[in-house]
């Protein structure tokens, strides 16, 4: 690695001021798993690295009305082990558990995983299916945007120079709703997904029709994808195995995967259908359980 300016601000305002000053010359470092790896491989050579680890107030997990707000500096491991997340959004805890290894989860942060915009990461997929929002701050202001609008291209997010992800807000599941995360790992237990799918299914009071379903896909395009065509098939329909299979087939046509070490584009397309069906099947089962529990 080459030498760079290293800044370690203690407050959000100070951080935002530095980011404003350096613009696109600066890179934010939190856990560092992504940035240091890229710097070691010469894929990034920033003039300034701004460590936000010491910034106060970005490390909390809290219940707000109807959602859970997770500070950007919360590590994957903290999210995975958080009793609040485990109890209220077990699918999210499970998704964080599926990221790499515990060592990496101790370092990598929730905000960092979003800002990195790697289409092979696990958490963005589930956050997208859960319709989470990303809080972004810059000197003199902030904005919140849906996760579904946050990813623009391969390793490219909606963040502008000077902006920082400060939190993600995840709505709790409505009644009679189940959620699932399926990570297809055909090689080894520690790998990026060949295909990843997060799904939610909300049942109508009759317990048989689907009020709403959400499907998000990872590792099948240059960004995580929300698969609305397949969702539309399910919305209002009476659920059954054949329908879930049809949703899988619909999803397959929407993806545009890359050939890589985890599978050819053709294989990933086929597996998208299989994994969407599996994720929906799990989410549906969870939804029935949730409906029974509340009914």
């Amino acid at each position: 690695m080459i030498a760079f300016d290293y800044r370690a601000p203690r407050s959000l305002d100070e951080t935002l001021a530095i980011l404003q000053e350096y613009g696109d010359e600066a890179r934010v470092i939190a856990g560092g798993t992504a940035l240091v790896t890229m710097m070691r491989q010469r894929l990034a050579q920033p003039a300034c690295v701004v460590s936000v680890r010491g910034v106060a107030g970005l490390g909390r997990i809290e219940a707000t009305n109807g959602s859970i707000r997770i500070g950007a500096l919360v590590t994957h491991r903290e999210a995975e082990c958080s009793p609040l997340i485990q109890e209220r959004l077990p699918v999210l805890a499970e998704t964080f558990r599926r990221v790499g290894t515990i060592r990496i989860r101790h370092m990598a942060t929730v905000g960092g995983a979003l800002a990195h915009a790697d289409p092979n990461q696990d958490p963005p997929v589930t956050l997208m299916a859960l319709d989470a929002g990303v809080e972004v701050q810059r000197a003199g202001g902030g904005r919140e945007l849906p996760v579904a609008e946050f990813f623009r291209d391969y390793y490219e997010s909606a963040l502008e120079p000077g902006e920082l992800v400060t939190a993600v807000t995840v709505p709790l599941l409505p009644a009679a709703t189940g959620a699932s995360y399926v990570k297809f790992l055909p090689r080894t237990a520690d790998d990026y997904a060949t295909v990843a799918v997060a799904a939610t299914v909300t049942l109508e009071p009759d317990g048989e029709h689907c009020r709403e379903a959400r499907i998000a896909l990872g590792s099948v395009a240059t960004t995580p994808l929300r698969e609305r065509a397949a969702e539309a098939l399910l919305s209002g329909a009476r659920l059954g195995e054949r329908l879930l299979k049809a949703a899988g087939s619909a999803a397959k046509t929407a993806v545009d995967p890359l050939d890589d070490h985890r599978g050819s584009a053709a294989y990933k397309r086929e597996m998208t259908a299989v994994m969407v069906e599996r994720a929906l099947t799990q989410a549906w089962a969870e939804a029935r359980r949730a409906a029974r529990a509340s009914g």
Binding site: I29, G32, V36, S51, R77, I102
Partner: peptide
């Protein structure tokens, strides 16, 4: 491996295991 995968560089930082090959010393 030098990329946080193999674990040969595992150390505990404040009691938690991390990959020291992809952590900056300043971290």
């Amino acid at each position: 491996c030098g990329v946080g995968v193999c674990g040969a560089c595992t150390v505990l930082l404040d009691g938690k295991m991390i990959s020291s090959c992809i952590a900056l010393a300043v971290f």
